[in-house]
């Protein structure tokens, strides 16, 4: 499997598109800057909604209204993250594709997406559902923030665990 990934990374790195990303010095830092700014939007939105769940943010607003304001914009921003992330992989395939940290990050991302979608759907579809289930929703909020933080940590760690 690893040999296959190395071969694929080599091929990807040899494409003309990858060469452009590698050789124009400002492209990678610019993509990373856009990527981090989008991470800031998604992470802060998730944190604010979870603070609302703990009644530490906009207590005077119903959870549904806060969720609609902050969780709905997450999805288009995630698309930009996917795009900038893909371009970064094309530019430096080995950095992530042959790197366990990258796969940990992607697994955590999958969990975060499921948890966030679950929270958003439930809160918006049946506003009363979590009223009597405060422990459940607080557990969901805590796990969700831990997973999002894990994604940010893993993201930074990719730079330190890349293969030679």
């Amino acid at each position: 499997m690893e040999a296959l990934l190395i071969t694929f990374s080599k091929w990807l790195a040899s494409t003309e598109f990858s060469h452009t990303i590698q050789s124009v010095t400002w492209i990678i830092p610019t993509l990373q800057t856009i990527h981090i700014l989008c991470v800031a939007i998604v992470f802060s939105s998730a944190v604010l909604v979870n603070l609302r769940i703990f009644r530490l943010f906009e207590r005077d607003q119903p959870l549904g209204a806060v969720t609609r304001r902050f969780l709905s914009p997450i999805w288009p921003v995630l698309l930009i993250l996917l795009l900038t992330g893909s371009l970064l992989i094309i530019g430096e395939p080995r950095r992530s594709l042959v790197n366990t940290t990258f796969y940990i990050k992607m697994s955590l991302l999958l969990i975060a997406i499921v948890l966030t979608a679950l929270l958003q759907r439930t809160v918006l579809a049946s506003p009363g559902f979590f009223e009597k289930r405060q422990t459940a929703i607080r557990a969901l909020a805590t796990v969700s923030i831990l997973v999002w933080s894990g994604i940010l940590f893993a993201g930074r760690w990719i730079a330190y665990t890349q293969a030679g």
């Binding site: 939007i41 992470f43 760690w157």
Partner: peptide
């Protein structure tokens, strides 16, 4: 170093994200 850096990134994201709101 990477550990402190990761904490720094998480904190910066919250600063920038919340100010953007």
């Amino acid at each position: 170093f990477p550990l402190i850096e990761s904490v720094h990134v998480v904190a910066i994201c919250l600063v920038v994200g919340s100010i953007l709101v």
